[in-house]
């Protein structure tokens, strides 16, 4: 499942973009060094073709055994196993970017969040800390299937969890955190079953095929080097830092992640929540040019009713203004277009 631009706030979106982008830059740095040294010249076409393979494979809908539902693979775990975490991450990053653009899956700002949920977690957490250690001692057929199944489920569920956290922190929609998790986690367990089984079948096939030696060094690589652990620790610290910074700067999100779940209580009456409201109101006043304009953002039922009349007067003005702005911009575009028609040469005649 993709995190969407429609549900993300700029703070969450940009932080996740920074984390995922940083991981991508580091991965690229590491891989291009290996390629330039001549050690892995074949890596470039292999990555490109496997990216195309995963992208195509995602479009095959298969039935998940034991249930009536269907799913398709995400592929990051598979790529991490076949290519290693860094190269696997680069490949899944390219696949997710194409999805964000071609299918509008997620969106531009949510790309970072999606890359984290569906790329970083499987490639840099699940694969090096679960899959590889669990398979390194005993890489029998049964072991690979079991481990892939379990790690597939873990990767998917973890992704679902981070989506929920990102959505809650963004605060664009009201989401009862735990109830939502109750719904979303079982779905992702199911998807994870398919993911794990397909991963296992392709991995087993890859290790046993003629071209298996391509992946053999991947299979036999030493596990959990200090550098990976250090990188993981830094990433975790960064994430925690971002989240806490964010939590303190945007009490709104935290407030309802805690309070909304118990929907019977009136949030506005609680002293602690009141403090948060004051803070957030201050914050809003300091960032907004038009503090009075508060349609749809009442902090509690009371202020909403009080503000609703003003809100409606201002919103009428807003509607007219919006229409006007839109018309102006479109007129400008039309004007440019007529000019362009005179000068443009069709592609086929170039």
């Amino acid at each position: 499942m993709h995190m969407s631009d429609a549900l993300i706030s700029p703070e969450v979106g940009l932080s996740m973009l920074a984390i995922a982008g940083g991981a991508l830059a580091l991965s690229c740095h590491r891989c291009s060094r290996e390629i330039r040294s001549g050690e892995k010249l074949s890596q470039i076409p292999l990555m490109g073709v496997l990216g195309a393979f995963v992208f195509a494979a995602q479009m095959i809908n298969f039935t998940i055994p034991g249930t009536g539902s269907s799913g398709h693979i995400a592929g990051a775990l598979l790529l991490a196993v076949l290519l290693g975490p860094a190269a696997g991450f680069i490949v899944i990053a390219s696949v997710l970017l194409v999805q964000a653009l071609l299918f509008a899956d997620g969106g531009l700002l949510a790309y970072g969040a999606n890359l984290f949920n569906m790329g970083f977690i499987p490639c840099f957490l699940v694969y090096p800390f679960l899959w590889r250690p669990l398979v390194s001692r005993d890489s029998s057929r049964r072991r690979i299937v079991t481990v892939s199944l379990i790690t597939g489920i873990i990767a998917m569920t973890a992704g679902a969890f981070t989506i929920t956290v990102e959505t809650v922190f963004s605060g664009i929609t009201t989401l009862p955190f735990f109830k939502f998790l109750m719904v979303i986690v079982p779905i992702h367990v199911l998807i994870g079953v398919g993911e794990g089984l397909i991963t296992a079948s392709v991995v087993l096939f890859a290790f046993s095929s003629e071209s298996g030696e391509l992946f053999l060094d991947q299979k036999n690589r030493r596990i959990g080097s200090w550098r990976t652990v250090a990188a993981f620790a830094i990433a975790a610290a960064l994430l925690a830092g971002m989240l806490s910074w964010f939590a303190s700067s945007n009490p709104d999100g935290l407030e309802w992640s805690v309070a909304r779940v118990e929907s019977t209580k009136d949030v506005g009456q609680q002293p602690a929540a009141d403090l948060l409201h004051q803070k957030s109101a201050e914050l809003q006043r300091s960032t907004s040019l038009l503090p009075d304009y508060q349609l749809g953002t009442p902090k509690s039922a009371d202020s909403a009713t009080a503000g609703s009349v003003i809100a409606w007067r201002t919103s009428a003005a807003g509607l007219i203004g919006s229409a006007l702005t839109l018309t102006l911009v479109l007129l400008l575009a039309m004007l440019l277009k007529t000019r362009q028609r005179r000068s443009a040469v069709p592609f086929s005649k170039r």
Binding site: H29, I35, P45, G48, A52, F55, A56, I90, V98
Partner: peptide, 20 residues
Amino acid sequence: VPALFITQLQMLFRYFFVIG
């Protein structure tokens, strides 16, 4: 954006048609 990622993206565009 790192050159390797750009190459990867272009290879993905290129070979999606072939593999697809």
